[in-house]
Amino acid sequence: MNSPAVAGVALKQRLAQVELATWASVGRFVALIVLCIGIGSFSSVFFTERNISLTLTNACVLIILGVGETFTIITCGPDGPDLSVGSIMTITAVVAALMAKAGIFFGFAFGASLLFGAAIGLVNGLLIARGGLPPFIATYGIQWAVFGFAYVILKGYVVYDFGADFRFIGNASLFGFLPMPVVVMAVVVVAGFVLLRKTTLGRKIYAVGANRDAAYMSGIDVSRTILIAFVVSGFLAALAGLVFVARTNAVQADIGAQYLLTAIAVVFMGGGGIGGQGSVVGTVVGALIMTVVQNAMDLYGVPGVWRNAIIGALIIVTVLFELQLKRKIVRRN
C-alpha cells in the first residue's frame, strides 16, 4: 500500500490539484494587480491618495456584505446566497437613522439595529433550517417583505443629516488617516477569518457545506449551523447598513438594492461558490476587483445606465469561469 509507485502517483495528483487551486487564487490576485496597473497607466487620478482612499472606503460596504455571504455560501453551496442582505442593510439603516433623529444615544441605536439585523437573519435561518425552504426562496421572499417595511417606516421620504457621533463610523478617521469604514471593515474581515478558521463553529460550517450528510452522520447539528450562518449574514448586513448611512449621511428605502448581485458575486469571484469552499480573504480580493472596475467606470465616465449591464455580464462570466474551474479541480481525481 505504501509502495513508491502509489505514493508517486498520489504525489503527482496532489501537486496537480494544489497547483490548479493555488494558481486560481494567485490568478485572482494577479488579476487585481494587473487591473490596477492597467487603469492607473491610463488614468492620472487612479493612484492618487484621494482616489485610493475613496475606492477603499467604497469597497467597505461590499466587503462587509460579502463576508456575510461567504458564511451562507460555504454552508449551503451555490444555491445558498442570502438574497435578503440588501433589504436588511436598508431597514437597519432606516431604523438607526430614525432613532438618531429622535435623539436616542447613537450607541444604543447601533446596538438595536445590529440585533434587528441578526433577528431577520434568524427568521431566514428558521425558514431554511426548520421550514425546509430552499435558501433562495426564503431569503428572496424575506427581501420583499423587509423592503416593504423599510418603505412603510420611511413613507417614501429620505432621512438625512445626522449628528457627528452617529456619523463617526462612516466619515471619521482613526489617527487622522485611517477612514473609519476601513477600520470597521478590517475588524469584520479579521473576525470573519478567525470565526471560520479558528473556531469549531467555522469547522462545522465548512463540514456542513462540504458534505451535509457526512456532517449529520458525524453528529454535527446541521440545522443549527445553517441557522448561525444566516444570523451572521443578517448581523453583518446590518453593520454594512450602518456604515453606509453614516458615510452617505442620508438614507432612503432602496439603498440596499444595488448590492443584491454584487455581494453574491464577490464570493464567487473570490473562489467560493461550492459548499465547503471559499474564504474571507478570497471574498476581499473579489470585492476589490469589483470596486476597482466600478471606480474605473467612474473615471472613464461610462454612462451610469450601462453600468448595471456591465456588472451583470461581469458576474455571469466570472461565475461561469469559476464554476468551470471548480469542476476541473473536482474532476482531477
Binding site: L261, I264, N308, A309, G312, I316
Partner: peptide, 16 residues
Amino acid sequence: IATLGMQGVIFGFTLA
C-alpha cells in the same frame, strides 16, 4: 445563479 445574473444583465440593458 444563472438567472440571478441574467436578471442583472437584462435589467441593466433595459435601463440603458
